[in-house]
Design a binder for these strands. Structure first.
Lengths: 139, 139
DNA sequence: TTTCTAATTAGCCAAACGACTAATTATCTA
DNA sequence: TAGATAATTAGTCGTTTGGCTAATTAGAAA
């Protein structure tokens, strides 16, 4: 029961359910890509991913400076709950929007994505002052 | 997604998962019986049951002074998630203990059960002072 | 009608949760 | 080796959650 409860708690949060659901479509995503989708701080996305990994729902793989996450399809993994979740999530508007947003994110290289995230972080409230040249770059 | 999230949040609590799980075995239980199982106040059990009903996981039926709860097996109900949950819960020790405890609870009439709960409430810390005659009745 | 009672709602409090920034760790590269 | 960088951990803060008691509601029975 404790393990089951851990999985349910892990999925009982909007952001984590979004992470879980996009991973049914993209198979493997980098922390910085998920961060971009959720529009939260790096620390926040890291904690959410940690909770999903601890619950046994995701696996992570480190490659150079990046960490990649996939669904954990092991015997105690996600296969069966997916049968319940997938039909409910696929038709949902916010999830569809996530899929489309992720298509755009995946079209950008991780290097560019992370550079952009760094620049956004440097002075969130006054981008026009400290980084005037990037001001209108986000199409 | 919102409805799915509501169901996940409803099940992501130990006491509510216990309620859900015993209802796979007993089909229909009264609020006071569930209260006895969880050993919480009436207000607490009522709120947990309300959350499960709001999420669409349980249905309730009022009969005279008692309210009975069952799993909501409707088309948007619990059928599919049960396939995921049941095998995980059935083998679990605390759930087995709940089944046995509930056997004992069901052996008592609701009238006796509720009277006992009322008496326990009257002076939780000092039963031997205010209700000496019930002191050793709990076998 | 009045009284009793099972359940719910209101209001309160401590603990848990989710977000952030700052500091740290691990890894690449100049 | 020193500097840069993606991710994680530590620490803080406001919100939510889960428990309680007290008050209220709905239904039975005297």
């Amino acid at each position: 029961m404790e393990k089951t409860l851990l999985k349910l708690k892990a999925l009982a949060d909007g952001n984590r359910l979004r992470i879980f659901s996009v991973l049914t479509r993209y198979e493997e995503l980098c922390a910085c890509q998920i961060r971009e989708l959720l529009q939260v701080s790096g620390a926040t996305v890291s904690r959410h991913l940690g909770i999903l990994v601890t619950a046994g729902l995701l696996k992570s793989r480190k490659e150079s400076r990046w960490v990649y996450f996939t669904l954990d399809g092991g015997c105690d993994g996600v296969d069966n709950i997916l049968e319940w979740l997938l039909p409910r999530l696929q038709g949902s508007d916010p999830i569809q929007a996530d899929f489309e947003a992720l298509d755009r994110i995946m079209a950008v290289s991780k290097e560019d994505l992370c550079r952009q995230q760094r620049e956004e972080m440097c002075c969130p409230q006054q981008k026009e002052i400290c980084c005037p040249e990037q001001k209108n770059e986000q199409t």
